[in-house]
Amino acid sequence: MLEISSLCKSFGGLQASQSVTLTVPQGGITSLIGPNGAGKTTLFALITGFHRPDSGSVRFLGEDITGLPPEAIAKRGMIRTFQTVQPFAGQTVRENIAVGAHLKIRDRAQALAKAEAVARQVGLGDRLDMDAGSLTVAGRKRLEVARALATDPKLILFDEVLAGLNPSEIRDVIPVINAIRDAGVTILLIEHVMQAVMSLSDYTWVLNQGAIIAEGPPKDVVSDPHVIEAYLGKGMAERIAKREAASA
């Protein structure tokens, strides 16, 4: 569904993205993990048109969308959310979600009705008339999900929707994401919460210093020595293996 090949981007001397190649198959949940500063969010921005890649290509549903503006990409059915939540403060939850709904729906009343339905789906049904700016962090994360969902997307890119939530809130949101997948929407998520990556995703790509260093089912990837070293430092994979051998 989404094919990224040899995508490069540098900011001055910093290579934020070094020839990244990855694919997201239709259906299911694919995850993208990596230590802080690995370039995950930059990659999202490159895919969705917020940054223009220096070279390489992004293909979505078989079409080349490299360098298109964000709104054109959104219209094709690929929607991103933001890591730092970006509500339209001063507008109600209903109005916020309706902006997403308006992508496909011209009529105001229909868009508002759709917003209400989506809000219930993500568990915001009781806060429809609240000012989006006064939502809690967990509420804002849900709002990000709801706005994206209201556009009727084919592929959603979630940028750390679980970050900043406490364990019980995470437990509440995971079923919401699963339900979106079950409704037939493909999901690519950036996530730090490993519990979520393990329980949600079918396939994982690991990014470190702007390059893909591993891929595979989440269970295999977390035991990959390259991945352990990227997170914990050089030599750690060896020490862990030794300790496990000793205890076994």
Binding site: P69, P70, E71, I79, F88, Q91, V99, H102, L103
Partner: peptide, 21 residues
């Protein structure tokens, strides 16, 4: 719709564009 998109752009242009505005 025009008004909804206009106020969305006012309140957060990037978020609005991400939603296809």
């Amino acid at each position: 719709r025009f008004g909804a998109q206009l106020t969305a752009v006012r309140d957060n242009e990037d978020a609005a564009r991400a939603l296809g505005v």
